[in-house]
Design a protein around this nucleic acid. Sequence first.
DNA 1: AGCACA
Length: 497
Amino acid sequence: MISEIVNKSMSSSSSQQHQFRYTQTPSKVLHLRNLPWECTDDELVHLCNPFGNIVNTKCNVGANRNQAFVEFADLNQAISMVSYYASSSDPAQVRGKTVYIQYSNRHEIVNNKSPGDIPGNVLLVTIEGVEAGDVSIDVIHLVFSAFGFVHKIATFEKTAGFQALIQYTDSDTAASARNALDGRSIPRYLLPEHVGSCHLRISYSAHRDLNIKFQSNRSRDYTNPMLPVNHTAIDGALQPVIGPDGKKKEPESNVLLASIENMQYAVTVDVLHTVFSSFGTVQKIAIFEKNGQTQALIQYPDVTTAAAAREALEGHCIYDGGYCKLHLTYSRHTDLNVKAFSDKSRDYTLPDLSLLATQVPPTGWQNPQSTPMYPVSSPAFQAQVPGGQMPSWDPNQQAFRPSYVPTPDNFPGQTYRGPPIPAYASAAMPAGASSPHAQRNPNVHNASSMGITQHGVPPNVNFQPSGPSPPVPGSSPHMQTNPMAGAAPQGHRPYYG
DNA sequence: AGCACA
């Protein structure tokens, strides 16, 4: 007995713990633990209200969501509750669980509720890591119907990403869906193959009743089957097409979505422009991060060009050695809204005054099949694109780039490990000739010797558009013909697991 | 059963 006490006092030698255990100064904020994880604010209020006015609560706190804080208007009210249960024979309970109450070590509940935490019958769901086209409204409906009747769904795209408003009958249903799905992932088999993980972030919407005008591919009202159908939205070019194999195919688009795997090297707007310009005029480029993976949207003037680029580049690596492997799909977008000139985006369609003075008139891409799809010699690859194609903005023409100052530091030293040889002429370069080790000498930074002062072309651009000739197997050690081939088995993860 | 969160 005595030794126990001694041990305890010794083990709790830290002043923190000591204070915790013995000198809890009263606070009008109470800390409640051992709550059921389903505990609601209402239940907290119900429990604490008899002792005073509750001005704030914070529920479902902690890793197990089994703690809470309650703030009384007055310190004496908190004291009365603590002392009541300190001497009471029957303990405080929520849903039959004994709740342990003590003074919090803080004196107010701060930031109790962001708007999204105020319960309601409408959920705001952010689907991370996907584009709007990746998750159909039917999939969303399926997933969220598991918790109750879904009245309405409206989807939209915001800066936060692809979002959906899900309307349930009541906030209890909404809460159960939120509790079950927040942070979880939509099962892989319900998603297109190129989608990696896609986590749901769920908060409450302030909406009570969504105003759905049409049944369309972006909104549904399941309570009103008579609602007019927006056929253009449903049947339009954006509607997924079922391929001959019965699998969903994304509709073609003039905008490609590139997911870049194995991003060993920075992939800049310039690099992408270089790569994708081999197939036609690149109008706009936007680079962004989705779930830690770099993606880019590349806009061509027409679907045909985009299709040619996709066909040729799919599965290929920008850099030798399996680095920066491209996975291309069609985007839902048809016209990107990008900053004209930033490090993550470019709009090549805008007139550049400094360019117009000296610019060669742009010539449209004529026949991608009849000419080599990529320049044959590396240094001035940009200028040598056959067909007279001249982008309205040429990264190699420094004189025409008033606001663009190359910053070599953009390449972290440890990744910029070699001469920026845009070995774009894969045909002229035997597979394996460019061994990664030979090329990535950390001491070689002879960018300018290549005639390419633009920093955006990292080492050894050993790009191998297939075009007329098939890809060379084994040219990149890590290259898989089908990038998804190895991923399929583990793609099936347990439902919401 | 043991202190949140931007």
